[in-house]
């Protein structure tokens, strides 16, 4: 089942360079899709288009169509200026490369999104906190210190907190832009494990920080090079027998 369909998507920043050219790809529901490729390929730009976070950047023009098929049967035209971006971002959540904890307590970080969405009942908020921390494999480590400042956690814990913060919102899609690039191998494997855990209920789009990570977690993979989508294939295929020479060179580590 397709969750997000991207058709003929172009994106140009205000410096005039076309950062994404004619991208057409379907993102399957309840699976992990990875966007990989060398620096500057446009992976982050595409990811940020999916929840309209690009609105804030110096984007000159976008064209094409991106549609989100909601669980309630509704179709959302993401690029439509009329689309309610706040509602969209509650459906399409994002975790960034560097963990960004808000200047609040651990609990405050988790409930912030729900509170601004209007949830006030303490028991529901408490449930959301525990559930999301469990899913992000962080509950055991922080359950006794929920009221401490989030910034007092270690980097790896902070990143899992950010993941939990997204999960607390119960979005349908979670975007992760190199979420483990600053983490040690143990924290990285914890994050990857919890992604495996939650992928049955969420659509996950991940920009991995290495080809190895991509190969480990991908159910579907897409290779981007200088603004173009070179090749997309179900997980292992892209790594085992890529059809394009450039993809092959990249996944075999001949350039990075």
């Amino acid at each position: 089942m397709v969750k997000i369909s991207i058709e003929h998507f172009h994106l140009t920043y205000s410096d005039g360079a076309e950062s994404l050219r004619d991208i057409t790809i379907d993102i399957p529901a309840r699976a992990i899709s990875v966007f990989l490729g060398p620096a500057g390929g446009g992976k982050s730009s595409l990811l940020r288009a999916l929840n309209r976070l690009n609105d804030l950047a110096d984007v000159r023009s976008v064209s094409g169509q991106i549609r989100l098929f909601g669980d309630n049967g509704q179709t959302i035209d993401i690029l439509d200026p009329q689309t309610d971006v706040v509602a969209l971002r509650r459906l399409v959540s994002m975790v960034f490369a560097r963990p960004v904890t808000l200047p609040l307590s651990i609990r405050g970080n988790l409930t912030y999104g729900l509170e601004v969405a209007g949830m006030r009942q303490n028991n529901l908020l408490g449930e959301a906190v525990e559930r999301s921390l469990q899913q992000a494999a962080l509950w055991e480590e922080v359950k006794d210190r929920l009221d401490e400042p989030a910034a007092a956690l270690s980097g790896g814990q902070q990143q899992r907190l950010c993941l939990a913060r997204s999960l607390a919102m119960q979005p349908e899609v979670i975007l992760l832009d190199e979420p483990t690039s600053g983490l040690d191998p143990i924290s990285t494997s914890k994050v990857e494990a919890s992604l495996q855990e939650i992928k049955n209920n969420y659509t996950i789009v991940l920009v991995p920080h290495s080809v190895q990570q991509a190969a480990r977690v991908a159910d579907h993979a897409a290779f981007f090079l200088q603004g173009e989508l070179i090749e997309a294939a179900p997980g292992p295929n892209l790594f085992i027998n890529p059809t394009d020479k450039r993809t092959q060179d990249y996944v075999e580590g001949r350039f990075g």
Binding site: L56, V100, Y112, V116, C162
Partner: peptide, 22 residues
């Protein structure tokens, strides 16, 4: 940092909620 605002917005906060709370 820009990333603070991005993080709050990505959680579905409006521009004003982001300014006020973050």
């Amino acid at each position: 940092p820009r990333s603070y605002r991005d993080a709050a917005l990505a959680l579905g906060a409006t521009e004003w909620q982001t300014i006020w709370r973050v």
